[in-house]
Design a protein around this nucleic acid. Structure first.
Length: 271
DNA sequence: CGAATCTCCTGGAGGC
DNA sequence: TGCCTCCAGGAGATTC
């Protein structure tokens, strides 16, 4: 499942497309999280791809008259292929470029999204409510402490809330809290400034480690070249129920928080 | 308003 | 081998 490092890795893999001109768009299965706009088949051809950026887990592709927003959901991947490569079962969306390369979106579970933001609409609801990027300086202990001060929900749920900070999914939330030695059920407002410092540091470290590894994954993430292209990251707690903690050797526990599996070490992580 | 729950979807794993 | 159930999960929508 793509977390932020996988999305960033995907974006980097698409950079060879910069400056290229769209020849055609093919929509095979429009019903993703929201319908893929049919007008893209008329809108995009002849437009040049000028920029590829990322905000949270959205990949933003800037064209002449607007921006294409791509989201991989939980099973999405994007490949760059020669157009003669036949589409497979869950290949829902293609952008064919004039040099015969194809950007192809595959998404079996169809939680992903393809949307169009016209240049006139600069304040799309999906983007204008987002919290800071986790790796930027604006995400710091002071900000986090202030933001959490009114929140009574569990810290695990708070760091997964995109209004607080973007890009921290279920895996890295558990991992970061372990590394910061904070119990995932701790009410967010109870975190001291010191704990916020540790958590900010470990969120940045955890994400940066995964970025350096080229994007980790569970089972179905592939880079744009179609190869697995990552190595399974070593997790401290995620998916390690009943296995020994790598620090203290006591068994890792699994609980449900906000409908999500949450892994932690009851000995190492304090409330 | 905050917080909890529901929801979309399919493939894979495990049980019988 | 086949069918059933359960689970995974991003994040907007809905409800309380």
């Amino acid at each position: 499942m793509p977390e932020l490092p996988e999305v960033e890795t995907t974006r980097l893999g698409l950079l060879p497309l910069l400056g290229k001109v769209v020849q055609a768009v093919e929509i095979r299965h429009p019903t993703l999280r929201w319908p893929i706009p049919q007008h893209l088949m008329q809108t995009l051809p002849h437009q040049t791809l000028h920029n590829l950026t990322r905000r949270a887990k959205y990949i933003l592709c800037a064209f002449d008259t607007g921006t294409l927003l791509l989201h991989l959901g939980m099973s999405g991947r994007i490949q760059l292929l020669d157009r003669h490569y036949p589409p497979e079962k869950h290949d829902h969306f293609d952008i064919q470029f004039s040099d015969a390369q194809v950007l192809r979106l595959r998404d079996p579970r169809r939680f992903g999204a393809v949307l169009w933001l016209d240049n006139q609409t600069n304040d799309h609801a999906l983007l204008n409510q987002l919290g800071p990027e986790p790796l930027e300086a604006s995400f710091n202990a002071k900000y986090l402490h202030q933001t959490l001060s009114s929140k009574s929900l569990a810290i695990k749920n708070a760091v997964m809330d995109g209004h607080v900070v973007v890009g921290v999914g279920n895996i890295y939330a558990s991992e970061s809290l372990f590394r910061a030695r904070i119990h995932p059920e701790t009410p967010a407002k109870n975190l001291s400034l010191k704990q916020c410092e540790r958590l900010v540091t470990e969120i940045k470290n955890t994400l940066q480690d995964a970025l350096n590894a080229g994007g980790s994954s569970l089972r179905d993430f592939f880079g744009t070249d179609g190869n697995p292209g990552y190595f399974q990251q070593e997790y401290f707690v995620y998916g390690r129920t009943d296995e020994p903690c790598k620090v203290c050797a006591k068994p890792i526990q699994c609980i449900r928080l906000g409908q999500r599996s949450t892994f932690f070490c009851a000995h190492c992580q304090k409330r």
